[in-house]
């Protein structure tokens, strides 16, 4: 462990698809920012392509997506595929929303690192990122 000041983790919080439920995404974005991370919030109604492009342009360490519309299987898979196609698989993908257990298992096996169900405290998400995401810089 070095004592040099650590670069802050850069996080993109994305809202893919047509889903307008942004309460969770915004609360998480603010909590991560308050925890000292650099947070970029995409706003609503992004396509997977827009999100992956922003993530690469912003050179983020991880990418969190919030989906409450039931479209998680399609949207997470597309984002993973686009990251793979663009050699950006080092960007860690996590997420939250209304995602049944079975689907969560399937998504994790595809490469989503963690999914936070409703009721997760913001501290749990902060702790998880601190433990699992190392800033690239």
């Amino acid at each position: 462990m070095s004592n040099s000041p650590k670069a802050p983790v850069r996080v993109l919080i994305g809202k893919p698809g047509l889903d307008g439920h942004d309460r969770g995404a915004k609360v998480v974005a603010r909590a991560l920012r308050d925890a000292g991370m650099e947070v970029i919030y995409t706003g609503l109604h992004q396509t997977p392509k827009m999100i992956v492009t922003s993530a690469i342009q912003e050179d983020v360490d991880c990418l969190g997506m919030s989906i409450l519309s039931g479209a998680h299987m399609t949207l997470f898979s597309e984002v993973l595929k686009l990251l793979h196609d663009q050699d950006a698989e080092d960007i860690i993908v996590f997420g939250g929303g209304i995602i049944p257990d079975e689907d969560a298992k399937a998504l994790k096996s595809q490469g989503v690192k963690e999914l936070f169900p409703p009721g997760t405290s913001t501290q749990e998400i902060v702790t998880w990122i601190e433990k699992n995401v190392k800033p690239k810089r």
Binding site: L18, D19, T47, S69, T74
Partner: peptide
Amino acid sequence: ALSKGEVGRE
């Protein structure tokens, strides 16, 4: 195209 994955779900 933007409907992909969302038809009939919610």
